[in-house]
């Protein structure tokens, strides 16, 4: 095993981490604020991918440009989901909430199957297959874009949460709903915002994935499992944690495939998850 091969694996893992982070941050944001574990997050990504694909197919709009449309569309979708689906069961037992979001995921998957059929779609852009070659290492250009896009969006979100009044209000609701109400914050509106943002991030992930991946009704399943690992590893509700955890997961998966075996990449990831949870049950960012 020469050094180039190992280096290639590390870089590939880092690039994958960008996408994992975007899906996971949406998930962790919704959980952090609304306290709902959204099992349909993967299907939100799928919707984002179909919107992007459709805009490209019907309107010839470049996937990156269409982020400007995809994200607002998904934001509105998220707001509607919160208003009409999540809100009525916020005080219901956990089990009811799980059934609702799992049910939503099944409905969305089958709706996509109905409207778009099971065909595998892809967007062909001039840069889909561009690759940079540096010292024997190949870097896929759309993956670099996706990684950069994920970093930018995560940065913007962090800024929004720490610098703006609305962002601070969102964090206040996440920390303590009752006290935030005393301060004159309307938690219901913050919930709408949180789920909207979470869905918009999923939409962004979808848009950034499309140039190098395929769109099909069950594509969400591929991403959501990893997103859950990332969110738990990085402590539920923590954005910095999700970023750090996605890097660990991406690189561990890639190196795992290289050294342990091509079907053992995820085994390495789960081993790290289990080990972390034994040593630090609340995840990397939690209190020990």
């Amino acid at each position: 095993m020469d050094l180039t091969t190992i280096f290639q694996a590390v870089i590939t893992g880092v690039l994958m981490a960008g996408i994992y982070a975007l899906v996971a941050i949406g998930l962790t944001l919704i959980f952090g604020v609304v306290r709902i574990v959204n099992f349909a997050q993967g299907e939100f990504v799928m919707l984002g991918m179909y919107v992007t694909w459709w805009l490209w197919k019907a309107g010839g709009i470049d996937p990156y440009l269409s982020l400007l449309i995809t994200m607002p569309v998904l934001f509105v979708f998220g707001v509607l989901v919160q208003r009409f689906l999540f809100r009525p069961i916020l005080s219901a037992p956990d089990m009811a909430q799980i059934f609702l979001t799992v049910g939503l995921s099944v409905v969305l998957m089958n709706a996509a199957l109905f409207f778009f059929t099971a065909d595998f779609r892809s967007v062909k852009t001039t840069y889909s297959e561009w690759a940079l070659r540096v010292a024997g290492i190949t870097l896929s250009v759309p993956r670099i874009f996706a990684f950069a896009g994920a970093l930018v969006l995560a940065g913007l979100l962090t800024l929004f949460l720490s610098k703006t009044d609305i962002g601070k209000a969102l964090r206040a609701v996440a920390q303590d709903r009752e006290v935030s109400m005393l301060l004159g914050i309307d938690p219901e509106r913050m919930y709408l915002l949180a789920v909207g943002l979470g869905a918009a991030l999923a939409g962004a992930a979808g848009g950034l994935i499309v140039p190098f991946f395929y769109v099909f009704p069950t594509v969400g399943v591929v991403f959501v499992l990893i997103a859950f690992v990332v969110v738990i590893l990085g402590t539920l509700g923590s954005i910095q944690g999700a970023l750090l955890a996605s890097l660990i997961v991406g690189v561990a998966e890639s190196l795992g495939i290289l050294f342990a075996g091509a079907d053992l990449g995820l085994v390495v990831v789960f081993a790290i998850l289990v080990a972390t949870l034994i040593l630090k049950p609340s995840g990397l960012m939690g209190q020990a």
Partner: peptide, 8 residues
Amino acid sequence: TDATPLVN
């Protein structure tokens, strides 16, 4: 989601 590790 990425075949690069395998193809590598």
